[in-house]
Amino acid sequence: MAAEAAFVARVTGTEVVRVDDVGGRLRPLLTDRTLLDDVDCLVVVAGLDATLAATVGAMTDVPIVAVPTSTGQPGSFGGFGALLTMLNSASPGVVVSNIDNGHAAGLFAARIARRTAR
């Protein structure tokens, strides 16, 4: 899903920087602000740790598109558990796409980036 979101955003003309496998390295990513300084929007793809989007949303003021995935945890009903977790996020500035919908997430992030560039 992350590759799909990055591809769609790149095709629509926005610059994309991918950071993979953040789980466990979240604090160093957010304490080293070099990746987040000039970012207009973040796409957070998570399955097993669906609270990742809310955590990132609480630590930064950048708009976030959360993408729940159907993989990652057995018994999550095909991503339904991750979707409900992301929908119930208390962090402001987090929007949630459909399960496994990297296309919509990439397009939405690209639209935010284009509007911010004006």
Rank of each mutant, 00 (worst) to 15 (best):
M1R: 08
A2P: 11
A2E: 10
A2I: 09
A3P: 10
A3V: 04
A3Y: 04
E4L: 09
A6S: 13
A6K: 01
V8L: 11
V8M: 08
V8G: 01
A9G: 08
A9K: 01
R10Q: 13
T12A: 11
G13T: 08
T14H: 06
E15Q: 11
V16H: 05
R18Q: 14
V19A: 09
V19K: 07
V19I: 15
V22I: 15
G24K: 01
R25V: 07
R25H: 14
L26S: 00
L26E: 14
P28W: 00
P28L: 04
L29F: 06
L29S: 04
D32S: 06
R33L: 05
R33Q: 07
T34A: 10
L35C: 03
D37K: 10
D37T: 14
D37S: 13
D38K: 01
D38T: 02
D38S: 00
D38E: 13
C41N: 07
C41A: 15
C41R: 00
L42Q: 03
L42V: 12
L42H: 06
V43Q: 06
V44N: 09
D49Q: 10
D49E: 14
A50P: 11
L52A: 12
A53T: 09
A54L: 03
T55Y: 00
T55Q: 09
T55K: 00
G57K: 05
G57A: 01
M59C: 00
M59S: 12
T60A: 13
D61K: 00
V62C: 00
P63W: 01
I64F: 04
V65T: 10
V65Q: 10
A66N: 05
V67L: 01
P68F: 03
P68C: 02
T69M: 10
T69D: 09
T69Q: 10
S70H: 10
G72S: 00
P74Y: 07
G75F: 03
G75T: 03
S76V: 07
G79R: 01
G81V: 12
G81W: 09
T85C: 05
M86H: 06
N88D: 14
N88V: 03
N88K: 08
S89P: 14
A90M: 13
S91Y: 03
G93V: 02
V96R: 09
S97E: 10
S97M: 14
N98T: 08
N98S: 12
N98K: 08
I99V: 15
I99W: 06
D100Q: 10
N101L: 06
G102I: 01
H103C: 08
A105N: 06
G106K: 03
L107H: 12
L107R: 13
L107Q: 14
F108I: 12
A109E: 08
A110Q: 07
R111D: 15
R111S: 15
R111K: 14
I112P: 10
I112K: 00
I112Y: 04
A113P: 12
A113N: 05
R114F: 06
R114L: 11
R114K: 15
R115Q: 13
T116Q: 15
A117M: 01
A117Y: 02
R118P: 09
